[in-house]
């Protein structure tokens, strides 16, 4: 009889394990230019913080837009939107000329477009969204403001870049940023220290990574692993 009770208990525990694993907050990380392996590295750091993380290269915007709904953390590293110096920002570019945009006033870059403004309460569980792209925190009169729209839809923290960032410094910043978050720094501290880490790599200088902007609870940490507050 005792043996049966032990066996039942063991079976119960085994059945509970996958459920516990799948309960870990989800993250998705995207490399969408020559930015590999930043998405993978971010995924490794997030996994160390007990998130259920995944990464991909050259995903389509439709995939990212759909997965965003289930994310605690969303990280994009790729191209930002640029028409001219007066109309830049408000969008991030995925594969096959597909874009995630904050909004539109009738300007439509690329072939497939998905709008943050079209979400209802879908992304209210997002804890942190990071858009590592040129002008990703800049307001564009044509396509809106990615950070503001993401926050309007309920994300807790959103980070983007007002200026121009290039691939190598973006890689440096990303590697350092996620590593520092993993080590328990706040989002604001990790972003700031990551920019100084990049200054010391050649060639000397910030090269745009100092133009990061954070909306929301910038003094939060990513640990313990969790979804955002709504």
């Amino acid at each position: 009889m005792k043996r049966w009770i032990y066996m039942l208990a063991a079976l119960f525990l085994l059945a509970a394990l996958p459920a516990a694993a799948s309960a870990a907050p989800l993250t998705h990380n995207y490399d969408c230019s020559d930015t590999t392996p930043t998405a993978y590295d971010a995924r490794v750091d997030q996994a160390a913080m007990y998130y259920s993380s995944s990464s991909s290269t050259n995903a389509h915007a439709s995939t990212a837009y759909s997965q965003f709904r289930s994310d605690a953390v969303f990280f994009f590293n790729g191209h930002g939107l640029y028409y001219d110096d007066s109309h830049k920002g408000g969008g991030i570019k995925f594969s096959s000329e597909s874009w995630i945009l904050a909004d539109t006033d009738g300007h439509y870059p690329g072939t497939d477009r998905y709008y943050i403004t079209d979400y209802g309460t879908d992304i209210r569980d997002v804890l942190l969204a990071v858009y590592l792209a040129c002008h990703s925190s800049h307001y564009n009169p044509y396509n809106g403001d990615l950070l503001q729209q993401t926050m309007n839809k309920g994300a807790d923290i959103c980070l983007g870049f007002d200026g121009e960032v290039e691939v190598e410094n973006g890689k440096c910043w990303s590697g350092s940023f996620w590593d520092r978050l993993r080590n328990g720094e706040t989002v604001a501290s990790a972003a700031s220290n990551a920019k100084d880490d990049c200054y010391l790599h050649w060639p000397f200088g910030y090269h745009g990574v100092d133009t990061y902007e954070i909306s929301g609870s910038y003094n939060s940490c990513l640990t313990p692993a969790r979804y955002g507050v709504y």
Partner: peptide, 21 residues
């Protein structure tokens, strides 16, 4: 080294150029 920052006209709504050492 020569550290060069070069900007070009956009292609497919993406800023062209970057940093060359």
């Amino acid at each position: 080294t020569w550290v060069i920052t070069m900007r070009g006209e956009p292609e497919d709504h993406v800023l062209q150029g970057g940093l060359v050492v």
